[in-house]
Amino acid sequence: MPKYQFVIDIQYKSNVRDPRGEMIKRVLNDEYRIPASNLRLGKSIHLEIDAESMEEALKLVDKACEKLLVNTVTETYEVRKI
């Protein structure tokens, strides 16, 4: 069975405050004078899926996200193939 590789990018929704992102942004702004803004710290998960087809693999990744990897109340996610 072929293996398919994915990256799942998980971010807090834009209306959810992200204290870690705010702290990192502050250090970039104040310590290094880098005019960064809208900085959000999320998660990325790399994984391989055994599946018959890319379509099936994508379905399984979506299932993984909905069931466990992402809290859809506060987070959004994006799946990329690699």
Binding site: Y12, R17, P19, E22
Partner: peptide, 8 residues
């Protein structure tokens, strides 16, 4: 939802 404290 329970998220990180605002103080970090």
């Amino acid at each position: 939802a329970l998220l990180q404290n605002s103080t970090g």
